[in-house]
Design a protein around this nucleic acid. Structure first.
Lengths: 174, 174
DNA sequence: GTTTGCATGTAAACGGTTACATGATTGG
DNA sequence: CCAATCATGTAACCGTTTACATGCAAAC
């Protein structure tokens, strides 16, 4: 899912500036599924604008920097829907943690425990965020539930195996 | 996890050609955590070789194309371990499917069902592959279990919600 | 008084994908 | 006969990240 499509999607819900789009992408509902940085959002909006898929209006503010508010056009909306009608790219799960675990025999036990704890903490954070998220639409409800199911299962698995790790580390320390 | 590191990791287990590394990456144990194409593997091996982290020997074959077999050097091994000793990049889950679901209200019910089924099929495939995988090391066992836990939970969630989808579609068809 | 929030943008560098080129052998 | 397997590599392109530049206002 490229940044242009992400921008279009967000703009179907409400007008926004590049800055606001970045914030949305970081919110509960989105951050577990997509990502985008300023360096990709601003050029994306520029391109969309040149292609007539969004329109811009500039708002001059007094105590804040001026802002460019983007709205999706009719053409933009149908381009977005079209992109969801053609086959979606496959989901991707890149896991440096799992990869590293494949080589646990090459690393000190202590380092394994460290990686493990860092990963568990991250996953707990993600899970908690999804627990708190209040979905706006039926689709949002579904997507959040899906994320929750996945993270929850991972957390359960980690808890079970953390006990094993601890035993090993304790034995090694004796 | 960049392709150079992935190559080094695979070479800690056995010598291999670029072609073989590609195959390993696609195997059960790896494919759910990392990815790499020929276009990135060959240049990566070239760089590693120039940096002295791997060595090459060329094997001339008669009925097959000649091959370049790479071995990890002592320097390569320690560079690999070093890279696992420094903080790992965070896991990334990009899900065009979940993103699309956030906009289910904009799409025909039929299309939702289609995306849903395609996603379920993919996930089932992934799950089945992990079920069959025979881990070689303790780390492999752990990583495969982790993947299984996640995919299993997703599948359960999908099954429950597929029923709901069906009801809606049936109602819409009446 | 420092950090955070608001706000936009550019340029260089990076890492990677895709498509292409080549070509023999084996299996269905 | 056609597809897949073995095997290496290049080049163009793409999308993105990172760092930089700028600067005021409010909150802590």
């Amino acid at each position: 899912m490229d940044v242009r499509t992400i921008c279009l999607g967000i703009l179907t819900r409400a007008d926004a500036t590049g800055y606001e789009i970045k914030k949305r992408v970081e919110e509960h509902g989105f951050r577990h599924f997509v990502e985008a940085s300023f360096g990709s959002i601003y050029p994306a909006l520029d391109k969309l604008s040149r292609d007539g898929l969004v329109s811009v209006r500039e708002e001059i503010q007094e105590k804040r920097p001026d802002r460019k508010v983007y709205s999706i056009t009719r053409a933009g909306r149908s381009a977005f829907i079209d992109s969801l009608m053609t086959p979606l790219p496959e989901d991707r799960h890149r896991s440096p943690f799992a990869f590293a675990m494949l080589f646990s025999d090459l690393l000190p036990e202590q380092r394994i425990a460290q990686m493990y704890d860092a990963y568990a903490a991250q996953t707990e954070d993600a899970f908690r965020q999804l627990q708190q998220a209040k979905p706006q639409s039926a689709g949002g409800h579904f997507a959040i539930g899906l994320g929750r199911a996945a993270y929850g299962a991972i957390l359960d698995y980690l808890r079970v195996h953390r006990a094993e790790l601890e035993t090993q580390t304790a034995e090694a320390a004796e």
